[in-house]
């Protein structure tokens, strides 16, 4: 479970997030929607304890990011957007194993996890090759495997399909479905309404650091009287600027 409670984040005089609250239930795939620069990554970074909220708090599986950051980190797996953040001079297996070791996985368990993730993400053909020469899609798969290696309860995915081709994006969606079946809590950020529509039933919509909506997609459609999510998104954005 993730609970964001009246969180604000300011960098000097710049307000990145202002009084945002939403709740992701255990086992749910939840969408965090917003344009580039809306504050999605800042919110994710606060959940991952990289940044501290200026006001409010976030609880992950009942642990406060401010008071119990190590407990929070034990329970989350985060995939940052943009740069996939892998060690190019290490092989895919070495990258995943390194993070698994840091989470305290025993050698046998670690190998089992790597084999299982390699199969699930179709990485067997390149698992022992160095990451530097990989395509964006291959790198993204390795980054996802690294995020999941310690089998976290809460998975934070920041723009995970950016730069992926159609096949890789499909593999990714299948994987999210499988993780949901396993009861994982997933927060998925994107600026792509179509993708959110395929994966989530509930969303939080952020614009310029402020929460515009939090709830079910059906409620959102009912409220605006429009079925197309892209149109709703535009209506929200324009409405907040009016």
């Amino acid at each position: 479970m993730i609970e964001v409670k009246q969180v604000s984040k300011r960098f000097g005089t710049i307000s990145a997030i202002e009084d945002v609250s939403f709740r992701v239930e255990a086992g749910e795939v939840y969408g965090l929607l917003g344009e580039n620069g809306a504050g999605k990554t800042t919110t994710m970074r606060m959940m991952a304890t990289i940044l501290q909220p200026t006001e409010g708090d976030i609880e992950i599986s009942g642990f406060s990011v401010q008071k119990e950051p190590v407990e929070v980190r034990r329970r989350i797996g985060i995939l940052f957007g943009g740069d996939v953040g892998l060690y190019n001079r290490l092989s895919a297996r070495e990258n995943i194993a390194y993070f698994g070791s840091l989470y305290g996985l025993e050698q046998r368990r670690l190998q089992e996890r790597i084999d299982s993730l390699s199969q699930m993400l179709e990485m067997e053909s390149f698992i022992d090759r160095r990451v530097g020469a990989f395509s964006r899609g291959m790198k993204q798969k390795v980054a996802i495997a690294r995020t999941l290696v310690h089998d976290p309860d809460v998975i934070l995915l920041d723009e995970p399909t950016t730069g992926l081709d159609v096949t890789a994006a499909n593999i990714f969606r299948r994987m999210v479905g499988k993780l949901q079946e396993e009861g994982k809590t997933i927060l998925f950020s994107s600026h792509n309404m179509g993708e959110i529509n395929k994966l989530c039933k509930r969303i939080a919509l952020i614009h310029k650091g402020r929460l515009q909506f939090a709830g079910g997609l059906d409620t959102l459609r009912e409220r605006f009287g429009i079925s197309d999510l892209d149109d709703i998104f535009m209506a929200v954005v324009e409405g907040s600027e009016a």
Binding site: R73, I76, V84, G85, N88, L102, R146
Partner: peptide, 13 residues
């Protein structure tokens, strides 16, 4: 610069 340090700092260490 490569973004690996950010990932490393999210580990419980």
């Amino acid at each position: 610069e490569r973004g690996t340090l950010e990932s490393l700092m999210t580990a419980p260490i």
